[in-house]
């Protein structure tokens, strides 16, 4: 009796372990299938004309130039706004406001913000940036919205990286008569820069893929010309893709697939750079 029960249990154990492997791989396999499908659908559509073409009602001549330029603009502006604020806030929380009610409040608040859906940030940007600050549906308004969206990610990454800097380094700097800010600027930030940069790039790669908050702020699906200033109206790749997906003609589905390939290349490249930087930094600095 017991031995049969044992055999039974061992069998269940084996079955679960097979099911475990399947589960672990199923998501990845589906992802590979999806991406394969997209490549088959869209790769032949990618050519110079597609990259430099303006939007059009005819799928065969429509291109992603304006959306691509919009994405680059938004990426740069978002980085310029979120990087200094996020790093500064992370430094404050880790080095200055360690104790006290305020820092407790800041900490809870930041983890709460990280859980707010991106579309809610869109509503914030629409009301505050686009309307009250009168920026309209401009690149600037969209970038400020995305900057707020990724701020919690950058702050958390900054804090983690600063935490990893050994205190002996700070001690040495203080013992030589450095002020707090000199120590942070000359020792702590250089030593944690790799980690911070990794976090910032990952956060930006999330921003590049966002469509919903920008749609709410008022980014357009159809923009006839590439933006020239931060105050111009704009579209971005994900919105262009969204727009093409919702068109009935099959030609636009092909366009969407082709644009997705471009978007995925950008996203994965950014993730790859981030992971490469992290590994390089971990190897370079050992205390």
């Amino acid at each position: 009796m017991t031995s049969r029960k044992n055999r039974n249990n061992r069998l269940k154990d084996k079955i679960f372990s097979v099911w475990g492997i399947i589960s672990t791989l199923i998501g990845l396999i589906l992802l590979v299938i999806f991406i394969g499908d997209i490549i088959i659908e869209g790769i032949h559509r990618i050519d110079w004309d597609f990259l430099t073409g303006l939007p059009s009602r005819k799928p065969e001549i429509a291109g992603i130039f304006t959306a691509m330029m919009g994405t680059i603009w938004v990426l740069l502006l978002t980085a310029m706004i979120s990087f200094p604020i996020g790093v500064a806030a992370g430094v404050y929380l880790e080095e200055y406001g360690k104790k006290g009610r305020l820092s407790k409040l800041l900490e809870i608040n930041i983890s709460n913000l990280a859980g707010v859906p991106s579309i809610i940030y869109g509503l914030l940007g629409l009301e505050i940036f686009a309307r009250i600050m009168n920026l309209g549906s401009s690149i600037l308004a969209g970038s400020m919205t995305l900057a707020l969206l990724i701020l919690p990610i950058i702050i958390v990454a900054t804090r983690e990286s600063i935490k990893a800097v050994p205190s002996s380094l700070k001690d040495a700097s203080f013992a030589l008569g450095a002020t707090k800010w000199q120590t942070i600027y000359l020792q702590v930030l250089p030593a944690s820069f790799g980690g911070i940069l990794t976090g910032v790039i990952l956060a930006l790669s999330r921003a590049v893929g966002e469509a919903a908050p920008l749609i709410v702020v008022g980014a357009l699906a159809y923009v006839p010309f590439a933006p020239k200033t931060p105050m111009d109206e704009f579209s971005v790749l994900p919105i262009q893709i969204f727009n093409w997906i919702s068109r009935p003609q099959h030609g636009f589905i092909t366009n969407a697939a082709a644009a997705i390939i471009i978007l995925l290349v950008i996203t994965f490249a950014m993730n790859g750079v981030a992971i490469y930087l992290r590994n390089k930094w971990q190897k370079k600095i050992k205390w």
Partner: peptide, 19 residues
């Protein structure tokens, strides 16, 4: 405090050169 620490230097238990 910065002036004090210039006048009173310190060497630590584990060597801690800056990177």
């Amino acid at each position: 405090i910065e002036q004090l620490r210039k006048d009173v230097g310190m060497v630590f238990q584990k060597p801690n050169p800056f990177p």
